[in-house]
Amino acid sequence: GSVVKEKKEKALIEVRPYVEYYNELKALVSKISSSVNDLEEAIVVLREEEKKASEPFKTDIRILLDFLES
């Protein structure tokens, strides 16, 4: 629970300088966080969101995924 939350919060802070739609990304992460149990599940849902998103938000999600998977 809290470790996953920390990882996601740290990821958002780390990617902030590189993303165009930070507030939207943060809102998406919050929405996903409330419906998943762990980081792996969150990553799966983020990948689905990435497929549906259009640029440049798609790239923002990709940047976040790269950080979460590192």
Rank of each mutant, 00 (worst) to 15 (best):
44 V>R: 09
41 E>S: 09
38 D>E: 08
27 A>R: 04
69 E>D: 12
9 E>M: 10
49 E>N: 05
36 V>S: 08
41 E>I: 05
44 V>M: 11
51 K>R: 12
52 K>E: 07
19 V>Y: 07
21 Y>L: 12
17 P>T: 02
44 V>D: 09
18 Y>R: 15
60 D>V: 13
58 K>W: 02
25 L>N: 00
39 L>W: 14
17 P>Q: 13
66 D>G: 10
31 K>P: 02
39 L>P: 08
54 S>N: 10
46 L>K: 00
35 S>D: 10
46 L>G: 01
17 P>V: 06
53 A>L: 04
1 G>A: 12
51 K>W: 10
69 E>G: 11
52 K>P: 00
27 A>L: 11
2 S>P: 07
39 L>Q: 05
11 A>T: 04
44 V>G: 11
46 L>M: 07
53 A>Y: 08
57 F>K: 02
38 D>S: 13
51 K>D: 12
32 I>S: 03
69 E>L: 08
53 A>Q: 08
5 K>H: 14
69 E>S: 11
5 K>Y: 03
33 S>T: 14
2 S>I: 08
16 R>N: 10
53 A>H: 13
25 L>V: 02
45 V>T: 07
58 K>Y: 01
56 P>Y: 04
12 L>N: 01
24 E>C: 04
25 L>W: 01
36 V>N: 06
50 E>Q: 11
69 E>A: 11
50 E>G: 08
65 L>P: 00
11 A>K: 03
32 I>W: 02
28 L>K: 01
56 P>A: 06
40 E>F: 10
38 D>A: 07
18 Y>G: 14
57 F>G: 01
43 I>R: 03
56 P>I: 04
17 P>M: 06
53 A>G: 03
68 L>V: 05
28 L>I: 05
9 E>I: 13
29 V>K: 01
69 E>P: 03
61 I>Q: 00
64 L>K: 00
28 L>A: 01
10 K>M: 13
55 E>H: 06
35 S>E: 14
16 R>A: 14
10 K>P: 03
16 R>S: 08
46 L>D: 00
14 E>Q: 07
63 I>N: 02
32 I>N: 03
14 E>H: 11
31 K>N: 12
3 V>I: 12
34 S>P: 05
10 K>A: 13
35 S>A: 13
26 K>T: 12
7 K>A: 15
10 K>H: 12
52 K>C: 08
56 P>F: 03
37 N>H: 11
49 E>Y: 07
67 F>V: 13
28 L>R: 01
26 K>A: 14
49 E>L: 04
45 V>Y: 09
20 E>D: 04
21 Y>V: 02
27 A>T: 09
18 Y>P: 13
39 L>K: 03
63 I>E: 01
25 L>F: 01
41 E>V: 06
62 R>G: 11
10 K>S: 07
37 N>D: 11
7 K>F: 15
49 E>K: 03
24 E>W: 04
49 E>W: 04
66 D>F: 12
37 N>W: 06
67 F>S: 04
64 L>Q: 00
25 L>T: 00
48 E>V: 07
55 E>C: 07
11 A>W: 12
27 A>V: 06
42 A>T: 13
44 V>A: 13
66 D>M: 10
53 A>W: 07
4 V>P: 07
36 V>L: 06
63 I>L: 06
19 V>R: 00
2 S>L: 07
32 I>C: 12
70 S>K: 13
45 V>E: 14
53 A>T: 08
1 G>E: 12
20 E>Y: 07
44 V>C: 11
37 N>T: 09
34 S>A: 12
65 L>H: 01
57 F>R: 01
26 K>P: 01
53 A>C: 05
33 S>Y: 11
58 K>V: 04
50 E>T: 06
39 L>M: 14
30 S>N: 14
31 K>L: 13
34 S>T: 11
16 R>W: 15
34 S>K: 08
36 V>E: 06
56 P>T: 04
14 E>P: 02
42 A>G: 08
4 V>G: 10
47 R>K: 11
43 I>T: 05
12 L>K: 01
34 S>C: 06
11 A>I: 10
37 N>Q: 11
36 V>W: 06
61 I>R: 00
19 V>Q: 03
22 Y>V: 02
5 K>I: 13
15 V>A: 07
15 V>T: 03
54 S>Y: 09
19 V>A: 01
33 S>R: 03
25 L>Y: 01
50 E>M: 14
56 P>S: 05
49 E>I: 04
20 E>M: 10
38 D>K: 07
9 E>S: 05
30 S>I: 12
15 V>I: 13
48 E>Q: 11
63 I>D: 01
34 S>D: 14
6 E>Y: 00
69 E>T: 12
10 K>N: 08
58 K>M: 03
12 L>I: 03
57 F>V: 02
66 D>W: 12
9 E>Y: 05
10 K>T: 10
50 E>N: 05
17 P>H: 13
58 K>I: 03
57 F>W: 07
67 F>G: 02
42 A>M: 15
31 K>I: 11
63 I>P: 00
7 K>E: 11
52 K>I: 08
